[in-house]
Computed example of a mutant assay.
Amino acid sequence: MRRNLRVAAYAVCVRGGRLLLARSPAPDGTPEWVLPGGGIEHGEDPYDTVRREVTEETGYRIEVRALLGVHSRRAVGDPRFGRHRDHHALRLLYEGEVTGGELRYEVGGSTDFAAWHDLAAVPGLVRVPLVDIGLRLWRERPPHGRPADQPLPRQVNGG
């Protein structure tokens, strides 16, 4: 089985009771809302990644205010990543504050639309699970940086 590791950085930007989201097509083509962010390029610092990705996907410039946490997800044999693939997604979630730029849509990228959504309306949106994870980290600020439903890893020998 082929193994794949994808490390990415995402921003949770909340302003005036609204959350900034980008829209991306799901594998079946259905549009779904995602946190602005994306893959870390080789040699790139995650802090720089999240700032670059937010600008690419929304037009805004942000300041990173805090590292909210890290989320790890493994999908083995998932058709979205290939039935013969062991995909591990490691996502760093940051709190971002918009400091400049203007809202616009990404052209030729992984997203096609960006918008602010009332926090109360987010549960009714078609969205990826990472949106809820990011909001939970933003609200709860767990000291260990892990969502409440993600248990702490077991200690292994030598580690």
Rank of each mutant, 00 (worst) to 15 (best):
A114H: 03
G145L: 00
T58G: 05
A9Q: 02
V14K: 08
L103Y: 00
V7D: 00
T55F: 10
V54Y: 05
P129Q: 05
V107P: 02
T49K: 03
R6A: 06
D149S: 06
L92R: 02
H84I: 05
L21D: 06
V54Q: 02
L137Y: 10
R127D: 15
P123C: 07
V122K: 00
A8M: 13
V107E: 13
H88L: 12
R65G: 10
G101D: 07
R154V: 13
E41G: 13
R65D: 09
V122Y: 13
Q155L: 14
L103R: 11
R61A: 03
A8T: 09
P129E: 12
L5F: 09
T111S: 09
R3Q: 14
E95I: 09
V156M: 12
G77P: 13
P153L: 14
R154E: 15
H144G: 11
R83N: 12
T58N: 02
D28H: 07
E106H: 10
L130D: 11
G43K: 02
E41V: 15
Y47W: 10
G38L: 12
L125H: 09
P123N: 06
G77S: 11
Q155S: 09
R154A: 13
A89N: 03
G43W: 09
Y60P: 00
L93V: 15
H71Y: 15
L20E: 04
R6V: 08
P151W: 14
G59L: 02
R18V: 02
R146F: 00
D112S: 01
E41F: 14
G59Q: 07
V126S: 04
A121E: 15
R52K: 08
S72H: 14
P27H: 04
R136P: 00
A8C: 08
G96P: 03
G124I: 00
G29H: 06
R85Y: 00
E140V: 03
Q155K: 12
G43R: 09
W116H: 07
L135A: 11
G96R: 01
L21S: 12
V131P: 10
G82N: 01
G159D: 13
G159V: 06
E53G: 03
L152S: 14
P123K: 07
E41K: 14
D149V: 11
I40R: 12
T30N: 03
P79N: 06
Y105G: 03
V98E: 08
D28Q: 04
R83A: 14
E57P: 10
V156D: 12
G109Y: 15
L103G: 04
G77W: 12
H87G: 01
G39Y: 04
R73Q: 13
E95H: 05
L90V: 07
G38S: 10
E106C: 14
L93P: 04
E106M: 11
R23N: 01
D86L: 15
H87F: 08
T55Q: 06
T99M: 07
V122W: 09
H71G: 05
L90M: 07
S72C: 09
Q150V: 14
L152T: 04
V131M: 10
R65N: 11
I40E: 05
R83S: 14
P143S: 07
E95A: 05
E106W: 06
R74G: 07
R6T: 13
V128I: 09
A114Q: 07
